[in-house]
């Protein structure tokens, strides 16, 4: 475990908790893409199926449980408790266009043709594009609440920190995983324009608004 990976996990946890608190406290999921949250729940489910069969550490197991619990709780709040505030008019990105290619690619390009490994690979590919419905929603509404932009910044930073973690692991122990690395690069690239807007606007106290 190196500092980049730890900060990455922390950033990911902060993002997940920020979102859950935002919805719970404001009792509203306006500006949040329920479809992206469904994709994240699928990512965690397919990636952590070895939760009980493959013990790595208390940290690893507890974080997996937190991620899975929070992601399902978020989906429940959006589609259950606060569905009256769900922006179904704008949250229209076709997630089958993300699920099907990720599944096909997982069968074609993986490290090991075993069920668990193919599901892990599927979760890596899906995670790299899972934020697209959310970014699509922000572009359609033309703006994002400040708390939502903090959520996106933390979420985008997590995989950027993981890229630094893989750089560190490559030079310190010769470890690399091309599937995770290339997917992580794509995932982070998708946030680039958001990062620019966040740093140039939100950090100056302005609201995040995309050029109409």
């Amino acid at each position: 475990m190196n500092v980049f990976r730890f900060l990455g996990d922390l950033s990911h946890l902060v993002a997940i908790v920020i979102l859950l608190l935002k919805i719970w406290k404001t009792r509203s999921c306006s500006g949040i893409s329920g479809r992206s949250q469904i994709l994240f729940a699928i990512v965690f489910t397919t990636r952590y199926l070895d939760l009980f069969s493959n013990f790595i550490s208390v940290y690893n197991t507890s974080m997996k449980i937190v991620y899975i619990t929070c992601s399902y709780a978020t989906v429940y709040l959006i589609y259950g408790k606060f569905k009256a505030t769900y922006d179904f008019n704008h949250d229209t990105f076709r997630i089958e266009f993300l699920l099907v290619p990720s599944a096909i690619l997982a069968f074609l390009v993986n490290h090991d043709f075993s069920p668990l490994e193919i599901l892990w690979t599927f979760s890596i590919y899906l995670e790299s594009v899972a934020i697209l419905p959310q970014l699509f929603l922000v572009s359609k509404t033309g703006e994002a609440e400040t708390i939502t932009s903090h959520y996106l910044f933390a979420l985008g930073s997590y995989r950027l920190l993981y890229l630094l973690n893989w750089l560190w692991r490559y030079f310190s122990q010769g470890f690399y995983d091309l599937i995770a690395l290339l997917s992580g690069i794509l995932q982070t690239v998708l946030y680039c324009d958001f990062f620019y807007l966040y740093i140039s606007k939100v950090l100056k106290g302005k609201k995040l608004s995309l050029p109409a």
Binding site: I56, N60, K64, D112, S114
Partner: peptide
Amino acid sequence: SSESPNHDEL
């Protein structure tokens, strides 16, 4: 690779 890789990252 023969052994299924052990993913120790989240």
